[in-house]
Simulated assay, not measured.
Amino acid sequence: MLPNSNDLEYFLEVTKTLNISKASERMGVAQPTITQSIHKLESLLGAQLLIRTRTGVHLTKIGQKMSNQVAFIYEYWNSMRREVQHDLYELHGKYTIGVHPAVGYYTLPIFFKEIFSKAPNIEIDFIHDRSRNIIEEILNFKIDFGFVVNPFKHPNLILKKICDDSVCIFEAKNTRYSDVLFGNFDLLQTHWIIKQLKRSNFKYKHFVSTPDLFVIYKMVLSGAGYGILPSLVVKSQNSNTLTLANQNLPQYKDQIFLAYRRETLTSNSAKLIAEICKNIAISNP
């Protein structure tokens, strides 16, 4: 059985005053309450802690050792409490943010500019993965925040919409090989667009798949063919050389969200990160 905090606190006060009467006055409790607490500690330890005299009390050898240990416990507790309060209210700490690779092109530059200007002591680690994997890691407490595309809903997940996007077919002004189409075949958006293209007049002979959107962008920019790309990724490159191949071609609509668990917002640092993420200003393509 463990002693309660009051018993330890009363004993510690008695070791400071060496007088139960003075200890009771300083603690604002009756003398019998402190006496009972001392008896309880002695019973739990199976050893005498105090020697009572006419002028006050003296600590036994066990009492002296007990006093040092209890003082250490209280100092450790106060130190831990100060650290916790510091973590809660000071803008510092380390956080992991999951980012869908495509979303990172246009969210991370804005995010970094804001976070380091407002809280330079916060440390950020990034994990790049698909949205579904990022959400699963958030739910498993391995990722704190996530920039995700078209996330599934979950009762333990908070979703804040950031912006809309659309995945389209782009071309460059100097496109030389109009029969080549670049894209990431592992993406649902790409599958949907290719399926819809079968019903249109858009024709191509070769589809080249790569998971790197920046490679697709560069291939289209070089005139090597058409490319299936998110509009915001193209816009983030500040290039006016890529345009929609055709306004009437299929476009897949995406929604970009900030995702996190409610329990994540337990500190001022986490609240600031969430606020910056939610307020990232990205105009629709």
Rank of each mutant, 00 (worst) to 15 (best):
T190M: 01
Q48L: 12
D125G: 06
S267A: 13
V167P: 02
T266Q: 11
I62E: 12
E263S: 12
L8S: 02
I20M: 13
F11V: 14
S267Y: 03
V149M: 05
R82A: 09
V180S: 04
K278Y: 07
W77C: 05
V148W: 12
T264M: 12
L88A: 07
N240E: 09
L88M: 15
T210C: 02
I276N: 09
I169R: 00
V215P: 00
E42R: 06
N68G: 06
I282V: 07
S231R: 00
K203W: 02
N4G: 09
T243R: 08
L229E: 00
K118E: 13
F126V: 11
H39E: 11
N238E: 15
F145L: 09
I127N: 05
W192N: 05
K113D: 10
R261V: 05
Y106I: 03
I276Y: 07
F214L: 14
N279K: 13
P151E: 06
E83G: 04
H86I: 10
L59K: 05
L249F: 14
S67D: 14
S117F: 08
S117R: 14
I115Y: 08
I282H: 01
N279M: 11
N156F: 12
T210M: 02
D212Y: 04
D7R: 15
D212G: 02
N140I: 03
I134H: 03
I38K: 13
